[in-house]
């Protein structure tokens, strides 16, 4: 395969540098070939521009504009300075949505990791039905997130709710609890649902990491007299650390923007007690038709999500280097 050293497009400079062999005909062919290479990227380039770059920039522009339902038919509205940010962030509902998004993300990731890692360790043991159980663990992935939210709303309902029934049968509670009806419980309910959604993901990734831990390593530690706890914390965890990092970064990225589950389960209520940044931004834009305010809060969410970007890119550094043949 011809190796092309300098990808200069259109000028033929690279071809000329190649010396006497680079006749005009040859450089034309080279240029055509080079053009074809870029043509392969064209659809993706256009798409990224339209579906990612323009929306992000436009969202930023909107967040500095004085929008109203009347300005919807124009792409631009009067400049508003920082007022969308100051008014939105002064609003207690937005404030608590931001704080809640943080606590929700931290608690979700913590429990997803603990449960997921526990299950991964379990599946790493030898027991009958292990393979069967492991394949079934992925079944929750089949549910669209909104549908999961709606299903859990059904399971957590006050009267004839399955969760209440189990708790009453176990004598853990005397009276059914209005899980999605009271503000404090609604948050816990959304949290539990989100943990349920994320556990299979954590389990599968951590399990595959455990599979890659060389058995000689733990065996050597055992011979050296390390107990199970020591083998876990001193050998296994350090070895699978790269995967743990990936799981947490991805988990963070996916959890800060949670939307469907909340809408399906509580719609942000009762009394906005389960609003997260994404759902409140949606409310501002699409329920109150205050696109500027919604854009401002969306930008805040974007900045929070982008905190993970350097880390995410660093974890994928191999794929940046991956060379053409």
């Amino acid at each position: 395969m011809t190796r092309i050293s300098a990808p200069t497009r259109g000028t033929g400079a690279a071809a000329r540098r190649k010396g006497p062999a680079a006749t005009p005909a040859r450089s034309r062919r080279y240029r055509l070939r080079r053009l074809a290479h870029w043509a392969f990227l064209l659809p993706a380039g256009a798409y990224v521009l339209f579906a990612f770059a323009i929306p992000v920039v436009y969202n930023l522009v909107l967040s500095f504009e004085q929008t109203s339902p009347a300005t919807i038919s124009h792409l631009t509205a009067p400049f508003a300075g920082w007022s969308n940010y100051t008014t939105t962030l002064k609003d207690p509902t937005a404030d608590s949505a931001i704080v809640r998004t943080f606590s929700f993300t931290v608690l979700s990731l913590l429990f997803q990791f603990l449960i997921g890692f526990g299950l991964a360790l379990l599946f790493n043991l030898r027991f009958p039905l292990r393979r069967f159980a492991r394949s079934l663990i992925l079944v929750p992935w089949l549910l669209p997130l909104l549908v999961t939210g709606v299903i859990f709303k059904f399971l957590f309902q006050l009267e004839a709710g399955a969760v209440n029934q189990v708790l009453v049968d176990l004598h853990l509670i005397h009276q059914p609890v209005g899980f999605v009806l009271s503000p404090g419980w609604a948050y816990v309910t959304v949290l539990i649902t989100n943990i349920w959604i994320g556990v299979p993901f954590f389990t599968v990734l951590l399990y595959s990491a455990l599979q890659d831990v060389p058995p000689e390593l733990t065996e050597a530690a055992r011979i050296d007299g390390a107990g199970p706890w020591q083998r876990l914390t001193r050998v296994t965890l350090p070895v699978i650390r790269p995967v743990i990092e990936v799981v947490f970064v991805l988990g963070f990225v996916f959890t800060v923007k949670v939307f469907d589950v909340v809408i399906g389960l509580t719609n942000g209520g009762p009394a906005n007690s389960t609003q997260l940044i994404a759902t409140w931004a949606y409310n501002l834009s699409f329920q109150n038709f205050n696109y500027g305010a919604g854009a401002a809060l969306s930008t805040v969410l974007l900045l929070i999500a982008l905190v993970a970007a350097p880390l995410y890119i660093w974890l994928n550094r191999e794929s940046l280097r991956g060379d053409a043949l």
Partner: peptide
């Protein structure tokens, strides 16, 4: 390009939805 694809994966959909609605 690869780095920008990685960043594109991170973008919250509500940001895209908010602008795309008006566009």
């Amino acid at each position: 390009l690869v780095a920008s694809l990685l960043i594109a994966q991170i973008l919250p959909s509500i940001v895209i939805a908010n602008s795309l609605f008006l566009v």
